[in-house]
């Protein structure tokens, strides 16, 4: 692996879906790229297609047109076919923590890992984000911020090449949100980081900020 290596590339991606009888074009001809070590922010108003684009880039929504390439290879059309790649190379962070309620924080993190080396990584990451003492707690005993940090632990547990975050700080207070973003930025030194948010304050330090409106992309400096 090398800094600047192209991790993710979207070429003229269009994503349409049916909403009842209406056909909606959520993403309209988007092209973008994300290199290792870079931090890209994606902002835009509600309904502009940010999350849809993120899911298309992750291989969870096959584009209607265009191509998405991850680690140099085009993503398969079927989401299930790209599952192994997501498992090993992608770290996901959602607006809600999505923790499995009957698993401990440690087990939640390990549910996204392959190989025994993840154990030490989870412990060292937990130390870094202040979750070490909560590794054996179940989610219902955690505060909102702690839960989001637990989901951050899971997203980073598999040492992903690519971190995709969808409104990761939306349900957090400013200070906790900044703390989560700080960890993400640190991780982005070795990975590519794409953060979808409606809060530009969370994109401090981003290499690029992309603006999405009505599914179309515009760009500005961070």
């Amino acid at each position: 692996m090398s800094a600047g290596e192209l991790l993710l590339e979207a070429i003229d991606v269009v994503l349409e879906y049916h909403d009842g009888t209406r056909q909606v074009r959520a993403v309209d001809g988007v092209s973008l790229s994300l290199a290792r070590g870079s931090f890209v922010g994606l902002v835009g108003p509600s309904g502009s297609g940010k999350s849809s684009l993120l899911f298309a880039l992750a291989g969870l929504r096959p584009p209607t047109k265009g191509t998405v390439r991850m680690l140099g290879k085009p993503l398969p059309a079927r989401p299930d076919a790209s599952a192994p790649l997501r498992r090993t190379e992608v770290g996901f962070l959602f607006q809600e923590p999505f923790l499995v309620p009957y698993l401990t924080v440690r087990e939640n993190a390990l549910s996204h890992t392959v190989g025994p080396e993840a154990i030490e990584r989870v412990e060292s990451l937990a130390e870094e984000i202040g979750m070490a003492s909560m590794l054996d707690e179940r989610p219902h005993r955690l505060s909102g911020g702690e839960r989001q940090r637990a989901s951050l632990l899971r997203a980073l547990a598999n040492d992903p090449a690519l971190i995709l975050a969808d409104e990761p700080t939306a349900s957090l207070d400013q200070a906790t949100g900044q703390a989560v973003m700080a960890v993400l930025r640190r991780q982005a030194k070795d990975a590519g980081l794409l953060v979808v948010t409606h809060d530009p304050a969370m994109l401090a330090g981003a290499d690029r900020v992309l603006y999405l409106r009505d599914g179309r992309l515009g760009e500005g400096d961070a």
């Binding site: 087990e107 025994p116 080396e117 030490e120």
Partner: peptide, 25 residues
């Protein structure tokens, strides 16, 4: 590295059917 039995067991436990059954009586 932590490539030993108990640690591998920990990782496996996360998706183990037993874990679900024991914790959701």
């Amino acid at each position: 590295m932590a490539a030993n039995g108990p640690h591998t067991g920990l990782a496996r436990r996360a998706l183990s059917p037993w874990t679900y059954l024991r914790r959701n009586p």
